[in-house]
Simulated scan of single mutants.
Amino acid sequence: MRYVAPARDSVDPAVFARMPLAGWRDFSELLEGAPWPSIDALNQRWPDGSRQRFVAQTPALLGDGLHYEQRIAECGLIATRENNWHDLLNAMIWLRYPSLKQALNRRQIDEMKQMGPKQRSRAQYAMTHFDEGGVIVALSDPSLLALWDAHDWYGLFWQRRQAWLDGSIQVELFGHALLELALNPGKLLVGKALVFHIDKSADLRSSCAAAVASGQLLHDPLELRPLPLSGLPGWHADSADEAFHRSTPCYQPRRAGRSYPPVFVQSEPEPG
């Protein structure tokens, strides 16, 4: 069944105080204000010199004959439905992660040139999955990765709970569809993760954007590890209870034969 986001005036305000939406407090006037933000209000958020602009998705705009990705690449115009949660949240992702969104756009265009308009490659599916439901994860402890790869969710989220609190493992939500699901407090969130090991001086966002732009990642959906985000401390009302981690339906066993790629290692380049 297709998910339908709640009406703006019926969203439970409590969802904005809980992760992942609590991590977007700098956009609170766009999320929590009574009226829908205008396209102009979104564009005012771009830093000076940005090429991209949001533009209302109207029949006249769509009449240009361009694919959504082409319009961004060629004109810098991001078609955005007004009064629409999915597109508003996508706009927020663009504003926070412009380099990564641009990298995905360029890669999508390259794939479209090879595949044509009616077929999609495995790489295109991988990029779409990440764009909609992606999370970026940094970790340094191999024992955490072993629990994750084994789908030992009780071990990862309960027995090693402190690792999620002390920074041993860090998560940045990128997928706008996950934010849309989070508008409903009863939803159990599962992200599709790219996992990095980076040195302490490196920036997780720029490392991910560089790896995607260079074509080192996102060639197949199977690169993405499932991560049940509702298990993270504070991401679900019941995540502080041990019983939740023994019985929640978002903790699925690993499929027979399923394996994951190694963690991507990237550090910041040496200066000069």
Rank of each mutant, 00 (worst) to 15 (best):
A123S: 15
R25T: 12
L227I: 13
K101C: 02
L61Y: 09
I109N: 02
S10M: 13
D9M: 08
P271C: 05
S50L: 01
N83G: 03
Q57C: 08
Y3C: 11
A5D: 00
S247N: 09
G63Y: 08
L66D: 03
L181V: 02
A182I: 00
N105D: 08
L139H: 06
A182M: 01
L100I: 06
P249L: 14
D238S: 12
R51S: 09
L173K: 02
L66M: 14
L229E: 05
M1Y: 12
L227V: 13
R258C: 10
R51I: 14
G49F: 07
D203C: 14
R96A: 07
A256G: 02
A7T: 08
G49Y: 05
F27S: 08
P262I: 13
G49S: 07
S206L: 07
L31Q: 03
R45G: 02
T128F: 01
S201V: 04
E29A: 09
Y260T: 05
L222C: 14
H151S: 15
L21K: 04
Q162D: 15
P20D: 06
P185H: 00
S99N: 14
W158Q: 03
V11E: 12
G231A: 10
A123T: 09
E82F: 01
R205N: 06
G186P: 01
D199G: 11
C250K: 10
L204Y: 08
E180V: 01
P261K: 03
P226G: 02
A240W: 11
I169D: 05
V137P: 02
G191L: 01
D48P: 09
Q216H: 15
V55W: 08
R258S: 11
E223C: 13
L95E: 02
M1C: 10
S143A: 13
A177D: 00
Q52M: 02
G49L: 08
I72V: 10
W24I: 05
R254V: 09
S259K: 13
L42S: 01
H67C: 03
H86A: 01
G186L: 07
D152V: 04
I198C: 00
D131R: 04
R45V: 01
G63K: 12
R205L: 03
P13Y: 15
S267Y: 02
A163F: 09
C75N: 11
R71T: 00
Q119C: 07
S259D: 14
N43Q: 10
S143Y: 05
R120L: 06
I78Q: 01
Y154F: 15
